[in-house]
Every structure is written in C-alpha cells, then in structure tokens.
Simulated assay, not measured.
Amino acid sequence: MSAPPLSVVIPARDEAQALPLLLEDLAPLRAMGAELILVDGGSHDGTPQLAEAGVDRVIHSEPGRARQMNAGARVASGRYLWFLHADTRVPATSWRRLLDVLAVQPAWGRFDVHLSGNGPSLRLIGSMISLRSRLTGVASGDQGIFISRDLFVELGGYADMPLMEDLELCRRLKRLAPPRCLRPPLVTSSRRWEQRGIWRTVWLMWRLRLSYYFGASPERLAQRYYGGPRS
C-alpha cells in the first residue's frame, strides 16, 4: 500500500511497562499495513527506545495528551486516525471490527471499554462508562476514538488543553454526526481506580466533568486531577 488506510497514534509518557503489551496487540494490524506512531512527551524510563522496533515512527512532543495526539496526527499518512492510550489492550476481535467499520467510511467513532482489574465494582464501572458514552455521544480517550483524518484536520484537531480534550472534541464531532459505537470493548488499565480508590476516583471524575460542563477551566481541573501542575 502506498498510503496505509489507518494511522494509530499513541501518546505516551513513562509507559515502559504498559506499552510493549499494546504494541504486541497491534503487531498483526501493523503487518497488514496500518501505520503506528508513538508520540513521546518526555519519558524518563526508556519508553521511546522500547517502542522503536514496534512502531513506524517515534516522534517527540511537549507533554500533554492533546499536544501529543495533534503532533502524531500531523505526521500521519492514514485516511483514518485511531488514538490509543499506551495502557490500553486491544483484542484482535476489536481491531478487526474497526477495519470492517472503516470500510463504510464513518465520520468518527469509539469503542466500549472494559477495565482490566478484577472484581464486580470495576466491571460495573466499565459498563457504566460504555453506557454513558452511548447515551451522550461523548467518549473518553480510553475508548479509542477514531476519526477521518480530513475531518480531524477540518476541525483543527484537539484543543490545546491539559484535561477534557477528549470531551471537547466529541462535543464538536457529535454536532456533525453521531459516533459509531463499537464492540468488542477495548481493555483499559484500572490502575487509576486501584491506586486512588475505586469509588473515590469515580466521584472525582464526575465532579471534574460537571465542573467542566459548568465552565471551570481545564487548567484548574487538571490541577485537581493530577494533584498539582504537571512538570
């Protein structure tokens, strides 16, 4: 193929433990012609070096998911962009489903999500995230947002904001077209919930979302989420 139909953009920062698992999941997709781009935001753990053999390009960017994903999109050659977090796992059934859907040229879409940890609480949270997304037409970055490259460029990409960049993009996208909501789900790391406490994290995320919808600045929300400014 002279130009791969799909470019997978992976923003990462200090993901040496999780990233190899994702690249292993995506290796068959890459062998079929998809382009894999790792956008490093200043890792100190060797993430870029670990990625070199498993991706087509490693580029460097200022830290921040929005900035990193925009940087990856600028160098991508695929007709579609698929944004995946580095701690995501992608079953083969999921990327095959994506290829089937891209054949009918949707504007954009996302996947349902399953949290990696054990226990009924995490299973319930994953199900609720997926249901909320289906009802609202808004997805989080953990859900593997995919979008036509032409539409992404037309919209100006992700807004340069330290948090909620995924919600902001989806709010613009759903004015143009509803998302394609795909299964089987992607598997996203549950480490955020396990480290901070499951229901404490749920409560924090809902407060941040409500604050954002009522006009709080993403900079202030990022300080609350990360516990202070990120270096």
Rank of each mutant, 00 (worst) to 15 (best):
residue 178 P to V: 15
residue 129 I to V: 13
residue 199 W to V: 04
residue 73 A to D: 13
residue 13 R to D: 05
residue 165 E to C: 11
residue 50 L to I: 09
residue 66 A to M: 13
residue 10 I to N: 00
residue 158 Y to P: 01
residue 206 W to L: 14
residue 77 S to F: 00
residue 201 T to P: 00
residue 192 R to N: 07
residue 28 P to D: 06
residue 4 P to L: 12
residue 191 R to M: 01
residue 181 C to R: 07
residue 70 N to P: 06
residue 16 A to N: 02
residue 222 A to S: 14
residue 122 L to H: 06
residue 203 W to C: 06
residue 69 M to G: 08
residue 8 V to C: 12
residue 154 E to S: 14
residue 148 S to G: 15
residue 50 L to T: 03
residue 31 A to W: 00
residue 186 L to A: 05
residue 68 Q to G: 03
residue 33 G to I: 07
residue 21 L to W: 07
residue 130 S to E: 05
residue 198 I to P: 04
residue 192 R to M: 11
residue 213 Y to Q: 10
residue 105 Q to C: 11
residue 112 D to V: 07
residue 220 R to H: 08
residue 66 A to C: 10
residue 203 W to S: 11
residue 60 H to F: 13
residue 89 R to Y: 00
residue 13 R to L: 06
residue 91 P to I: 02
residue 127 S to K: 08
residue 52 E to R: 14
residue 29 L to K: 04
residue 138 V to M: 08
residue 89 R to L: 00
residue 172 R to L: 03
residue 22 L to Y: 03
residue 205 M to Y: 02
residue 213 Y to D: 15
residue 110 R to V: 07
residue 38 L to Q: 07
residue 11 P to N: 03
residue 137 G to N: 10
residue 37 I to S: 05
residue 91 P to T: 10
residue 178 P to N: 13
residue 206 W to K: 10
residue 107 A to F: 10
residue 12 A to R: 05
residue 151 L to G: 07
residue 48 P to H: 15
residue 21 L to P: 00
residue 122 L to P: 12
residue 181 C to D: 05
residue 56 D to Y: 07
residue 230 R to P: 08
residue 93 T to K: 04
residue 74 R to A: 14
residue 224 R to Y: 10
residue 74 R to C: 03
residue 43 S to A: 09
residue 113 V to G: 09
residue 12 A to N: 05
residue 95 W to M: 02
residue 108 W to G: 14
residue 202 V to I: 09
residue 212 Y to R: 13
residue 217 S to Y: 01
residue 158 Y to I: 11
